[in-house]
């Protein structure tokens, strides 16, 4: 009964306009396929979260968008340009928080580092940089390599935001930050979105943190997208159904959706189904189940459901 309808989650977001696209992007590290024919579509102005397990290819993808890794096949377009040909120009338009928290040179002070960034990015907003520096309590006199992970992250966030770039690529942006600074960062990002028109790609394991900011979701597994869709569509079509069923119930013949996960005891069952809410509810009711509740999943829960389903299929 788990193969009722094998409707995959949507991957194609339509005709755009897109700030970022990749087509058939593939990259190997030795025998490991880090990216396996990836078609990314990030609409202009979207806040797009990339979720996936360790090793799914999230950081490699972001580095490929930055023009920092060579890929074997496929194409990348960032704001209409190819980072393989115009790497420096593309990078000047991107606010990037890398996975690695080290930056600058050991001898360099944070103040000097920020001055370098101001020269590199013509749109650097010095007043905004000062304001962010103050909110993050950054000491410009510190040497770059004496900073803790959290202190480095704060400098990297200032570096990414202060030139108000049209594209932000944030790889685990809150990694290493304490609770208060993480919360402050979310507030800063909300204000930044209100003040500066920008497209954002965030890769994070703390999806629940950024969920209220996010409007698009990409689920990445083994270098491929399992789904790429607006948050509202995920909320509307991937749903959890709780139902009471008769003893020895064999399940519905046709559910009008794809069962992602099924669990429960003898007479109370929980399904996670991708499909039309009314059709699935009708399918369950007609088969004799009393549907007690239908509820959307958080992005975290959705990712866990979809990724563990893939794990089961592979094993």
């Amino acid at each position: 009964m788990t193969d009722i309808a094998n409707a995959a989650l949507p991957i194609n977001l339509g005709s755009g306009p897109f700030a970022v696209t990749t087509q058939g992007l593939a990259k190997r590290f030795g025998s490991v396929r880090a990216l396996d024919g990836l078609d990314l579509q990030v609409p202009e102005g979207a806040v797009y979260v990339l979720v996936g397990p360790n090793g799914a290819g999230k950081s490699t993808l972001i580095r490929a968008l930055m023009g920092l890794v060579r890929y074997e096949t496929g194409t990348v377009s960032i704001l209409g340009r190819d980072p393989a040909d115009q790497g420096a120009e593309v990078r000047a338009d991107i606010g990037y928080v890398p996975e690695d928290y080290r930056f600058g040179y050991a001898w360099m002070t944070v103040g000097r580092w920020l001055e370098h960034q101001a020269v590199y990015h013509p749109s650097w907003d010095a007043e905004y940089a000062r304001e962010l520096g103050k909110r993050y309590e950054i000491d410009p006199g510190r040497k770059c390599h004496t900073l803790s992970k959290g202190q480095s992250r704060r400098v990297q966030l200032v570096t990414a935001l202060a030139h108000r770039p049209p594209l932000l690529l944030l790889d685990e942006p809150t990694d290493g930050l304490d609770h208060v600074v993480r919360d402050e960062t979310l507030s800063i990002l909300s204000e930044h979105l209100a003040d500066s028109p920008t497209t954002v790609v965030i890769s994070t394991h703390r999806v629940y943190e950024v969920e209220p900011l996010v409007d698009h979701v990409g689920v990445l597994s083994e270098g491929r997208l399992l789904g790429q869709l607006p948050r509202d569509e995920l909320r509307g079509s991937l749903l959890r159904y709780w139902a009471d069923v008769p003893e020895g119930w064999s399940g519905p013949g046709e559910l009008g959706g794809r069962v992602v996960k099924r669990s429960g005891a003898a007479r109370a069952i929980e399904w996670t189904v991708w499909g039309d809410r009314d059709a699935v509810t009708r399918g369950l009711s007609e088969a004799g189940a009393a549907v007690r509740e239908v509820a959307p999943l958080s992005v975290d829960e959705a990712a866990v459901a979809l990724l563990s389903e893939t794990g089961r299929k592979a094993s």
Binding site: L186, S187, L193, L213
Partner: peptide
């Protein structure tokens, strides 16, 4: 304002 409320709620200003 949209900016104030989105900042205090930590939500997307579009919401």
């Amino acid at each position: 304002s949209v900016r104030e409320l989105s900042s205090s709620l930590r939500v997307n200003p579009r919401t």
